[in-house]
Design a protein around this nucleic acid. Sequence first.
DNA 1: ATGAATGCAAAAACTTTGCATGACG
DNA 2: CGTCATGCAAAGTTTTTGCATTCAT
Lengths: 134, 134
Amino acid sequence: MVENNELRKAGLKVTLPRVKILQMLDTADQRHMSAEDVYKALMDAGEDVGLATVYRVLTQFEAAGLVVRHNFDGGHAVFELADGGHHDHMVCVDTGEVIEFMDAEIEKRQKEIVEEHGFELVDHNLVLYVRKSK
Amino acid sequence: MVENNELRKAGLKVTLPRVKILQMLDTADQRHMSAEDVYKALMDAGEDVGLATVYRVLTQFEAAGLVVRHNFDGGHAVFELADGGHHDHMVCVDTGEVIEFMDAEIEKRQKEIVEEHGFELVDHNLVLYVRKSK
DNA sequence: ATGAATGCAAAAACTTTGCATGACG
DNA sequence: CGTCATGCAAAGTTTTTGCATTCAT
């Protein structure tokens, strides 16, 4: 069971809720899920996990680098599995569809700009809101 | 009084709360203020405006294009006067300091990437989280 | 066994809304 | 004057927290 090692490597005790949540993030159709999404999906799957636990576990996963939290527009955060590589997001304002992309040039410029200002880049957040061109 | 014309041009009735809030956004030290920030600043200035009104007015201002709403990290939205030109933000994770910047190359690449995917760019949100380099 | 994790319910933080009163044009 | 805006308090959302119980090692 791959999930258990992931958890152990992250220094987290292997508990049923944690395993279930990690599996859910891995196997769900949507790659970007809110805490509520995960909670409902677990309920639908017959798993009995508290919403508070979902929030707590997702926050721990984030701290451990297992998932990434995004604050797209609209009150709630969404989480996605940290499948290795970094990428940014395109969100279709009509359909809500989320597309991932990565552009070396943008990444490079960000670093340069920050350094020109006497800082170092810790993290960044880029979301392009788009619409299907007709 | 410049503010009154701004309001009228935006199709908003010129009321005391609206004028005061617009002035506050214009004259406050911080360029990026949350609803709560604006509310407190008004209270400190002896102006008696309800918090609900601040929220309502800021939302109207956003719809009218007078201000821009940002969802930086951490639960609350911040508003900034839409002083014409577009720009992105750098936020210092240690001090909370906000620096504005604009990079033509990044802007151009965004457009290109979106078009390569068959979309058109509606809006975007770029925040660089930085730390003073030592 | 023992310390950490969970579930529940309560609270916290932020924002919106209903409704009676008051202000703008 | 009629209508729209405001203030207050109540309700809504999303997320966090306290505490007794349960679970993993």
